[in-house]
Amino acid sequence: MSLPVDPKVIPKPPVPLEFSVKAESIKITGFWMFLVSDMLIFASLFSVFAVFRSRIMAGPTPNQIFHYGSTLLETLLLLTSSFTVGMAIFAMRKSHAQAMMTWLVVTLVLGAGFVATEIHEFITDVQHGITWHVSGFLSGFFVLVGTHGAHVSFGIAWAVTLLFQLSRRGLTPVTTRKLYTFSLYWHFLDIVWVFIFTFVYLFGKIT
């Protein structure tokens, strides 16, 4: 049996910058664990909504308060921002810092458009007396969709701080790891939104 004569360590395939330091790479795995636990929070809120969605009392039905237009607009904004943050990671892997920053700014603008549309939708509802204490359905709806909107708003604030750090420090194992975890977070919120528009908005239009 031959012992390994040459203990040379060969990077195969080349590992991207954000995985190049072991401590930073472990933080990426840790962020996946956070996403799993966050997914369970949303699963609980989805269960509550599923249980309460037919409990409308004297309040409006889902069909009366949901609109195809704003739902489609929010969905397209979030899907496109998911693509642009993917492009930011692609540019980061190519070490194109300027392209990466541009894609990240585009992502932020699209995310802000999403939050603005949702806030407008909520304000319009409240002006018509549709608030979360009217019925079980509305409580479940506002808590579920509001929690998602709060996550997106937090993500925007996080990305703004990341933009400052990236412009000051450039691409290092730490900053690239932060942008990578941000992209994971953003795609995760996109998945949650896909289930919200299916399970809340489209289901509400069907039944």
């Binding site: 590992v15 991207p16 995985f19 072991k22 790479s25 990426i28 795995t29 998911s82 693509f83 943050v85 993917g86 992209s183 994971l184 795609h187 995760f188 996109d190 998945i191 896909v194 289930f195």
Partner: peptide, 16 residues
């Protein structure tokens, strides 16, 4: 749609 996001955009199997 979730499969597309996880598989393509989130690079599910990237790890050291």
């Amino acid at each position: 749609q979730a499969g597309v996001q996880v598989g393509i955009f989130m690079h599910l199997r990237e790890s050291r």
